[in-house]
Amino acid sequence: MRDDPSPLNPLPPVVVVLFLVIAGVEAAFSLGARGIIGGADAVGWRSAAIQDYGFHGQILRWMVDTGQVPAEHLRRLVTYAFVHGSFTHAVFAAVLLLALGKFLGEVFRHWAVLVIFVTATVGGALAYGMLPGQHGWLIGAFPGVYGMIGGFTYVMWLRLGQLGANQARAFTLIGVLMGLQLVFALLFDGAPTWVADVAGFLAGFAVSVPLSPGGLARLRARLRHD
Rank of each mutant, 00 (worst) to 15 (best):
V83F: 01
L96P: 03
A206E: 02
D3N: 14
T172Q: 07
R109C: 05
G200P: 04
L96C: 14
A191P: 08
P13Y: 11
P132Y: 03
M148L: 15
V176H: 01
G35C: 05
R75F: 09
R218I: 08
E72V: 14
L104F: 12
V15H: 07
I174E: 01
L177E: 02
H89V: 02
M130L: 15
Q181W: 01
H225G: 14
V176W: 06
L20I: 11
H56R: 14
G101I: 11
G175F: 01
E72I: 12
L20K: 00
V83E: 02
Y146I: 05
D65E: 14
I116F: 10
G133L: 02
L11I: 09
L104Y: 12
T88Y: 07
S30P: 00
Y146V: 02
W111K: 13
G204D: 03
M63L: 09
A27P: 01
P70I: 08
L211W: 09
L177W: 02
A99W: 12
F201I: 07
A93Y: 01
A203K: 04
L96A: 15
V16L: 15
G123D: 09
H56L: 07
V91S: 02
F205D: 04
F205P: 06
F92V: 13
H89P: 04
G140T: 04
G215H: 09
L96D: 01
G123Y: 10
T88C: 00
L211V: 10
L126Y: 12
T79S: 12
V43W: 11
L173Y: 01
G164A: 09
A99C: 13
M178G: 01
L126S: 08
W157H: 14
P7N: 10
V69D: 07
Q58C: 00
R76E: 03
I22S: 13
Y53H: 11
A165E: 15
V176G: 00
L8Y: 15
G214Q: 08
F92R: 00
H56M: 10
A191L: 00
A199P: 05
R218D: 13
L160Y: 11
G204M: 07
M63G: 08
D65K: 13
Y154G: 06
I22N: 14
G38T: 05
R34K: 14
L158Y: 05
Q162I: 01
D226T: 13
L18K: 08
A125I: 12
T153E: 10
G133F: 04
P210K: 07
V115W: 11
F152Q: 11
V118I: 14
V195C: 04
Y154A: 12
L202Y: 02
P5F: 10
H225N: 14
L126P: 08
R46I: 04
R2L: 11
Q162Y: 09
I116L: 15
V107E: 13
P192K: 00
W137D: 05
V115I: 15
P10Q: 05
L98N: 02
R2W: 09
G35I: 04
